[in-house]
Simulated scan of single mutants.
Amino acid sequence: MDIDKSFEQKLIQASDNEFEKLALQVFKYQYKNNAIYHQYISSLGVNVNKINRIESIPFLPIQFFKNHTIKTGIWKEETIFESSGTTGQITSKHHVKTVDFYKLNALQIFKSFFGDPSNYHIMALLPSYLERGNSSLVQMVKFLIEASRSGISGFYLNEYDKLIQDIKTAKHSGRPILLIGVTFALLDLADRYQINLKNHIVMETGGMKGRRKELTRMEVHEQLKKAFKVSTVYSEYGMTELLSQAYSSGNGLYKPAGTMKIILRDMYDPFSISNSIRQGGVNIIDLVNLYSCSFIETQDIGRMNGEFFEIVGRYDNSELRGCNLMF
């Protein structure tokens, strides 16, 4: 299979009808050219010649991104995205061949959900991510801010007063606001200010980062809806190990991008994967992970609801499985 710009574009524009065919092509390419993934599949004793549907593809445990460099092919990365973590904790690292491929995909996904970014003032309250400097979320939001072509759009570290002033200015412009923030920062803002964002978008990206008491998503959304006078709170689902995103327009129900597919695995048998499972471990196919690994076994527990999915928890002791097979 030839890997070039036209194939990358085909992945970004994948339709439902093409998805399985493209995923199988990517799987064969990655099995052949990704040493870590190849070794993992070999350790399972899988006969790759018999894999002719995506449910049969082995999914790489997400922990491998903490202990190995996951690359398909030989190339020098333009950047490395790194996950957040507490002191002393091993973080995940995602080596990215070209930032432009990530950018094209992120903008395409955003447009498919919300329209052109230039229709919005985009204000980002992502303090913990900005402090790290190598966050995939910050990079994605940076693309959106640039594409908004608004002099008001921007990042805010702990500048709550300036953010509120800019929101007031933006509200007089006639262009809607998209306020995206890490959960604890949005709650901090809600504690300090009551501001009416009716007819605008408030979007949380999850995460208390040890800054506040853990709350359920429903509790978080109720507080934010009350503080900002909105009828719904949007959410973004992404992670360091993925280059695609899913979005929710409320109630914690996420719709994956066209480049993603969610397949659940049995809670007690990680190798039992089926579209008939309604609640289980979340496996994700991300076609845009072409140069790392597109088949990720996450630590999340999810539930399917038609074309939507929701995250209902995480596995305990999830570090114990997967990478042990390589040690």
Rank of each mutant, 00 (worst) to 15 (best):
F81G: 01
K261P: 03
F59P: 00
E204T: 14
F101V: 05
W75I: 12
K66R: 11
R132A: 14
Q223H: 09
N34R: 10
I152C: 10
T205S: 14
G207M: 05
Q245S: 12
F7C: 05
I152P: 06
I122S: 00
G154F: 15
D191R: 00
S173E: 08
V282T: 12
E222A: 08
E77H: 11
R278V: 13
L287C: 06
F295R: 04
S56Q: 13
M326P: 03
K111R: 13
N119H: 11
K198E: 15
M239V: 10
G85K: 07
I152E: 10
K198H: 15
L24E: 13
R175K: 14
S318A: 11
I57S: 02
E297P: 04
K198Q: 13
D4C: 11
I109Y: 01
P256W: 08
L125Y: 00
Y29L: 15
E297V: 08
I54W: 00
E131L: 15
M267C: 06
V233N: 00
L290K: 13
L157H: 14
H200Y: 09
H172M: 12
H121Q: 06
A185M: 10
V312P: 03
S292T: 15
F113C: 08
E310T: 13
A35C: 07
L187W: 02
D16Q: 13
E241W: 10
F143T: 05
V233A: 11
A124M: 04
G281Y: 03
E297R: 06
Y120D: 01
G258T: 11
Y37I: 00
T87H: 05
A190E: 10
G206F: 10
G281A: 08
P270H: 03
S136W: 10
A106Q: 09
L11S: 01
P58I: 12
I285C: 03
T216E: 08
L290Q: 12
F295V: 04
F101S: 02
K111F: 01
Y29G: 02
D188T: 08
R211A: 06
E236C: 09
F308P: 02
I3K: 14
S56Y: 00
N251L: 06
F143Q: 11
T183E: 01
V138S: 09
N251I: 04
S56L: 12
G250F: 06
I180A: 08
K71R: 14
S92D: 05
V288H: 03
E310W: 00
L11P: 02
V312R: 10
G206E: 10
W75A: 09
A257G: 04
I74Y: 12
F143A: 04
H94P: 02
Q139M: 12
K168W: 05
T240W: 04
A23N: 04
V26G: 04
A185S: 15
Q165S: 12
S153P: 03
C323T: 09
